[in-house]
Design a protein around this nucleic acid. Structure first.
Length: 502
DNA sequence: CAGCTAACTTAGTATGTATGCT
DNA sequence: AGCATACATACTAAGTTAGCTG
């Protein structure tokens, strides 16, 4: 971990040293009293050496390791559920190490304990064969609970939460969609009613109802998460809708020519910053002013509201409705609308794919799916730009050649010079196409710098929206989904028609 | 109704591998 | 072939939700 910046942080070092001392013998305790005086470079070099050695292995050695991994996967990576052999998502126990939470985490650097057989609860069918604990040890418990999906659980020592070994998430299949339409579809049917309801509630004489209504408006309009309260000092200081504090928003009666602007600035899940400036309706604005009256910056914006109350209310409006359904719903509808809006009939396939990527980015922006810019980003951008410049030169040359050939051919009428001109013309055309492709690639990459595209594309959205778009515009499906994804979404590829509407 | 907690579900990062380009 | 880049996936932290308890 020495290469990481966080090992220089005070909290990290303090937590680490405190936990390390707990593991020391009394002699070590007496001797090792100051982390600053400890030098770990020898260990660090050793592990770096190992990783170098791994990289330098021959093809055969690498293959051998791969085969061994495959064997382990086949032996431990599957279970039988309802007579089907199902892949287990995470069959390896989490190894010990130093905890690194995301963002400014008060527990960073703490020792994450090794999990031992006596920590493990096994959950399987009665009479089924389950893995035996290592010789001389026992599982904490073997139970047979068929009301839950997990196979193994243990309690983790940093937050005291339960960790599970589970199956790969089962994706929507043709069957489940027909039998039980996903909540998103149900919400689509009644979203107008629900919106009318919360707009009405902005005027309620009850403060808690108004707060609830404004919160739902934010969740709906901005795709904010519900925002459970968290215990102070146990986790990074992050918030969602219900846990917003006064300090997280600023109100501007007028801003850059727009009325009633709210500026959001807070850290959300994974300590990803949410920054947004949005005009809201006058009633919402007035309500926010009211909620903020006589409050300190670190007071709750919605002091009469929490996620439990909110979800209970949503449940009454529609069976199964909860805050997160709005996120999925708005993600889906945004993709569909953006695809319609951005796709230009007259453009070629690379340009259409760019539009597709932009529609997906619109969803990622809505849901605030961000990533750290890749470390090699600047360099790869420069490489691409160099390629583009080279291609431009090539094009200029080809054009010059074509012109010369045309000039040569002018006086003559022979087939040979005609043919030369034609070849040159084709060359220019080909290079133009290549240049365009590169330019599209550069635009796409630049726009993708800080956007985590995969998240919404693969976890959130009904693949039939994308599949329908492909079918509509004659885009080969492999341009948007790779082989694994095509397998995963095979049902959607079969089902979706070009006029499918979510 | 607050507080707790089990059981999922969502999410970003790290890393190894496949792919495509010159 | 050799490199750069894209992709796949493993990993696990950090959310949400609902149900229980007193």
């Amino acid at each position: 971990m020495l290469d990481h910046e966080y090992t220089t942080k005070d909290i990290f070092r303090k937590n680490f040293f405190k936990d390390w001392r707990k593991e020391m013998t009394s002699e070590e305790k007496a001797k090792i009293t100051d982390l600053k005086k400890c030098n770990f470079t020898e260990m660090s070099e050793y592990f770096k050496g190992l990783s170098e050695a791994r990289k330098a292995m021959t093809k055969e050695q690498k293959l051998k390791i791969k085969e061994e991994n495959e064997r382990l996967l086949q032996e431990y990576g599957f279970c039988i559920m309802d007579n089907h052999r199902e892949r287990i998502a995470n069959f390896r126990i989490e190894p010990p190490g130093l905890f690194r939470g995301r963002g400014d985490h008060p527990k960073m650097g703490m020792l994450k304990r090794r999990i031992r057989p006596q920590d493990i609860i096994i959950n399987c069918s009665k009479n089924s064969k389950h893995p035996e604990p290592p010789p001389g040890t026992k599982w904490k418990e073997v139970r047979h609970d068929n009301k839950v999906t997990w196979l193994v659980s243990w309690t983790e020592n940093i937050q005291g939460s339960i960790k599970y070994i589970m199956l790969n998430p089962i994706h929507m299949t043709c069957l489940t969609i027909n039998m039980c339409p996903p909540l998103v579809f149900l919400l689509k049917k009644c979203v107008d009613r629900i919106r009318a309801q919360y707009r009405e509630d902005w005027k309620s004489k009850e403060m808690r109802v108004r707060q609830r209504a404004v919160a739902i408006y934010f969740i709906d309009k901005l795709a904010l998460r519900a925002g459970n309260e968290k215990e102070e000092g146990e986790t990074a200081d992050t918030v969602g809708c219900c846990s917003l504090r006064v300090e997280h928003i600023k109100l501007y009666p007028e801003n850059e020519g727009q009325e009633y602007v709210v500026e959001f600035d807070f850290l959300g899940k994974d300590s990803i910053r949410y920054y947004n400036k949005v005009p809201v309706e006058k009633r919402v604005f007035k309500n926010l002013q009211l909620f903020m009256e006589n409050k300190e910056p670190d007071d709750d914006l919605f002091d009469r509201l929490n996620t439990s109350v909110l979800n209970k209310h949503l449940q009454e409006l529609m069976d199964g409705l909860s805050a997160k359904v709005f996120r999925t719903y708005n993600a889906s509808i945004t993709l569909q609308q953006q695809l319609k809006e951005l796709t230009n009939e007259d453009e070629n396939i690379p340009a259409k794919i760019l539009s597709y990527n932009r529609a997906n980015r619109a969803v990622a922006i809505l849901c605030n799916h961000q990533r750290a810019p890749p470390k090699t980003f600047e360099k790869s951008m420069q490489n691409l730009q160099a390629k583009i410049d080279a291609k431009r030169d090539q094009l200029a040359n080809a054009k010059r050649d074509l012109k010369a050939a045309k000039a040569d051919a002018k006086g003559l009428r022979d087939d040979k010079s005609k043919k030369t001109v034609e070849t040159k013309r084709k060359a220019v055309q080909r290079i133009e196409e290549q240049l365009m492709k590169l330019e599209v690639q550069a635009t796409d990459r630049e726009e993708n710098k800080q956007i985590a595209l995969g998240t919404s594309k693969l976890n959130y959205l009904d693949p039939r929206i994308s599949v329908a778009w492909c079918k509509k515009w004659g885009i080969p499906i492999e341009k948007i989904y790779n082989k694994t994804q095509r397998e995963k979404f095979a049902w959607a590829i079969d089902m979706a028609e070009k006029d499918f509407e979510f």
